[in-house]
Design a binder for these strands. Structure first.
Lengths: 312, 312
DNA sequence: CGCAGCCGTTCGCAATATCCGAACGCAGCG
DNA sequence: CGCTGCGTTCGGATATTGCGAACGGCTGCG
């Protein structure tokens, strides 16, 4: 047997990244290393795993079938080695975390940094991307999710709540007319969110007046906020993303009485048994970090915005 | 993650061999390499896997628990990589075969050599030992078994039949009296077989006269034959082991009409699904090799022994 | 069209990892 | 006591790995 775990991991990483250079960048390696590992693995197996088209690669059917089988086996192998670290031993191995970009950038950095400092032998991989990833498939140990969970196969734990507000810039309102009553909504456009359709973006029932889909859309909250600031439409966004701009007057909170429920923020993880200790400790750490006052609540103290709807 | 497949395999090999030098000898490596790998693996996991007592090692509880979990995961990982070699690709990887010593020495060498020549990328590991091994536990892909199968969890396939004969040397008979009728049996001793008790060694029912347990015993058929030649007792042995000595007159076939059924010779393997291709091809190869005339039948053409009981 | 940028592959070189054999200390045996 | 076998440590030789540069091919842009 002349392949290694690193060959397998590299293979799966290239599959996930869709390219050799993508996988190399994620691993902070040179692409020649990744290219050679793939070639060596193919040689060891005796079959091609990727087809090459002038600098582009595509996985073969063999590669896809193989990955289906390798992932659970590799996860079990890793879980086995990690299970043997008893309660007295410090955490080791790798913890791969997936989180929405805007939430991750603002609120996860220090939380995760604290966890990483407490476990110096633990390798942390962070992936901020609003696209919902299949945790097990993508090799993530933990995900953070904002919104109601759809994947009942995952284990989950509620961390806190994420209130959303409808915002618009002064320029937008000057150009498109006032928005003082819900009946004004159909005359307005709302900035789209690439990862959901309007049906899911607008959280009120079909009888409730709703804005039209806008001509612009983005794949994360920060970009949507900036488009709103630029006067391109309304935006329904988590409070933590817009509160600075609101305080600075670049955008305003419109229709503050809209009956929009806050979104739950949850940690989710694959149902591996036993639950890997690193996952359990990290989820506990998250729960502690977000217990009590959510971060954006503390920051909103100086803003003239109604906060009565925020849960204590 | 800073361990490798080789670390895991080395760990399991040391567990199986019971010592570092044993595992090193099997792998044709220096013991310092194996020692270092174990130490590195322990360091990577953060827990000791073996206790050391002045040049002796014993596995910790953690090590035993870990191995229980690692073996199936590793087997699946390997099976996955081997499954991807389609029907067009040649066999690769390692095929580990366990077989009884006397049968292996005589009849498996050329069969396996033929298979190995047909699959030059396949690594073959042979382990001849009459002790029945737990295939899955010991990392064997295929076993050959002589006798009725007791482990119903294994997959099996009948290869051929192994007739047994009762033999004694002229010196033994001269000293202990003739053996011309079954009623003479209780006056004689039979050489013991370490891996079975007499109750299993003597295959006729309790009412049938039987020899007494002898004062000597051995753990394989060749040794038992040699003890019989040395006049130490009767021996009930597979024909393939004794036919040369019979032909040379060193021992004789006594009570040729004993109603002793031949033993079945079977290939067995763990019930991995899908069945690894290398195992399937090897079992097919065995079936072909032992089809028709068993090897010892061809050799018995020149001997004056009744062969009517041999199947065609 | 030419150009820039991106892709994956190949190559030579330097750094790192691995393996070997010798030496050592310890325990058990005759 | 000496000898053998065990596992560990060490220095040196060998093998492997990773890097960056160069290359050819393709795509998109002006």
């Amino acid at each position: 047997m002349n392949w290694s775990i690193i060959d397998i991991e590299t293979f799966l990483a290239v599959l996930d990244a869709g390219s050799i250079s993508g996988a190399a960048a994620r691993a902070d390696l040179s692409k020649s290393v990744v290219s050679k590992r793939i070639t060596d693995f193919e040689k060891a197996l005796g079959v091609p795993l990727f087809t090459r088209h002038a600098g582009r690669i595509a996985p073969t059917d063999n590669a896809l079938a193989l990955s289906e089988r390798l992932r659970p086996a590799l996860a079990e192998l890793i879980a086995a080695t990690e299970s043997v670290t008893g309660s007295e031993a410090e955490l080791r191995g790798r913890l791969a975390i997936s989180a929405p970009m805007s939430f991750g950038i603002r609120h996860l950095g220090p939380v995760i940094a604290g966890f990483a400092r407490a476990h110096p032998e633990l390798e942390i991989v962070l992936d901020y991307d609003d696209q919902i990833t299949d945790l097990g498939r993508s090799g993530f140990d933990v995900g953070l999710r904002i919104g109601h969970l759809k994947d009942s196969a995952l284990m989950s734990r509620r961390l806190c709540e994420d209130p959303r507000v409808l915002v618009a810039s002064p320029d937008y309102l000057a150009m498109h007319g006032p928005l003082t009553d819900v009946s004004d909504l159909p005359r307005h456009e709302i900035i789209g969110y690439l990862n959901v359709r309007l049906g899911e973006l607008w959280p009120l029932n079909a009888d409730f007046p709703r804005p039209r889909p806008g001509r612009v859309m983005a794949n994360n909250g920060d970009a949507m906020r900036d488009l709103a600031i630029g006067g391109l439409g309304l935006a329904l966004l988590p409070l933590f993303i817009v509160h600075d701009a609101i305080r600075e007057g670049r955008i305003g909170h419109v229709l503050p009485d809209l009956p929009i429920e806050p979104l739950p923020v949850s940690a989710v993880w694959p149902p591996i048994r036993p639950m890997p200790r690193k996952v359990r400790l990290f989820v506990d750490h998250l729960v502690n970090a977000f217990a009590g006052t959510p971060p954006w609540h503390a920051k909103m103290r100086g803003a003239s915005i109604r906060t009565g709807k925020l849960s204590s």
